[in-house]
Design a protein around this nucleic acid. Structure first.
Lengths: 247, 247
DNA sequence: GTCAAGAAGATTGTTGACAATATTACAAAA
DNA sequence: TTTTGTAATATTGTCAACAATCTTCTTGAC
């Protein structure tokens, strides 16, 4: 067992994805997947980079078998793409693909928040959400990158996803969250955007409290569409800048 | 190469799922997955049944490696569930889980048909759909199980899924289609239900022709919800019958 | 200078054996 | 009769080696 347990809690998403009966001990492939996943989302592995089975196996001092399976797990989360006889490489989504993913997330977040707003536990959950959203309002004005704000948003989303009574939806949303976490940051980078975001969260909270599923779905969908537009805008700007730099 | 090519076209869904650059030759694991998939959806493997790697490997005269990967592929489609150190077994969805899956399908079909209705190719696609839906209207009245009707419905759905300009959505819908094909039959078992279904398809066709994305989404979602309700109703009846039989 | 063909190297796909773990059958005790 | 502990068996997890395929580099011709 060559995997260092210290880095094990790096990707709690992987744990939450397992849902229901989460085993306390991660399998060897899961441990490897968690380590690699961390490197991909942190940018240590750059988009498009190939990941060679043998190299990973040697680094972690295991054979290629578990590494193979770890790469399959990462493919399920959309972090790598595997081509027959050409192995795995870190995904490098085009702007169009980012659009695609956010469109899907928009619909499924809409379903999630509708189900929550129509569930019997909505009042209970609203109580849980309230202080987090209050904290959100406090940190929205902060100038700078807004890392704290983003942390709270991610936590709120995790809360809602874990609360919904639809196991399969939890699984899919968990995977989509892994794929979009790189971009949500872009959509909350200015105080103005964060102000808008806070208002959306407050509206959502009201909808959940009132048991208004239609409103909850509408708000959730709009929220994701907004962050999609912001992310795409940023990506276009980045692409334009790097094109200019290359010239 | 011990796999008999004769049974290869049994599950075209597997091919369509590959999307974009579908290779003409299926890998060994994919061939095994196709064979096993056929047995599961046909009922030859009963829900809950365990699938042992060694047994499958011996039958197809390959080693356990490719069989392992085939089982992972089936897990992606939701046809088997794999537990650590306990192997794979055919999924046996509860009524609640069937509900879950249809809820997700409802949202994503809504997105699909909205995107299609709002796409520039909508007129072109409407022309393609028209004769199929006309055929649908003709076969709706037929008494009996309505196998032909169901075939057309499945074809229509495949057409729409392939037409949408969202690769990731195609992939997810393909997997969901594999999981729900067992149940769509239940929702179209009577001429009355088929009449209702035809009207829905005609409304959808109009919405696509008019470029009315809102209407397309609304109709698509309702269509899936209807078939969900019909399927759940049937499953409850089945469960009640078998419970009585056991007593 | 560019492109094509071929060889050498690198990388994934597959296999069979061994290790670790789970399942089952059976016996003994409450 | 039911439950609990234990041994035997069955099954998955991992490994290292070999085969098949792809990539890259070199060489040569135009």
């Amino acid at each position: 067992m060559a995997i260092n347990p210290a880095a094990m809690n790096a990707l709690p998403d992987l744990l939450t994805r397992l849902g229901g009966s989460a085993p306390l001990t991660l399998s060897l492939p899961e441990q490897i997947a968690a380590r690699l996943s961390e490197r991909i989302v942190s940018g240590a592995y750059t988009p498009g980079q190939r990941i060679m089975e043998q190299a990973v196996a040697e680094e972690f001092e295991v054979s290629r078998g578990p590494v193979r399976e770890a790469l399959r797990l990462l493919e399920k989360d959309g972090l790598v793409i595997i081509n027959a006889r050409r192995g795995a490489q870190v995904t490098n989504p085009t702007i169009a693909e980012v659009n695609e993913i956010f469109d899907i997330r928009s619909m499924l977040n809409g379903l999630r928040d509708r189900l929550i707003a129509e569930s019997p536990q909505r009042a209970q959950l609203a109580l849980l959400l309230e202080p987090e959203i209050a904290k959100l309002a406090q940190t929205a004005d902060t100038s700078g990158a807004g890392d704290e704000y983003i942390d709270i948003v991610l936590r709120l989303n995790r809360l809602l996803t874990q609360a919904v009574n639809n196991q399969r939806l939890q699984t899919i949303l968990g995977a989509l969250a892994v794929q979009t976490v790189r971009y949500t940051r872009l959509g909350l980078s200015t105080p103005q955007r964060r102000q808008q975001s806070v208002q959306n969260w407050q509206s959502l909270l009201r909808a959940i409290r009132d048991g208004d599923g239609d409103a909850a779905e509408r708000i959730a969908r709009q929220r994701v569409i907004d962050s999609r537009d912001a992310a795409v805008e940023h990506l276009r700007a980045q692409a334009a800048a790097s094109a200019q730099f290359a010239a």
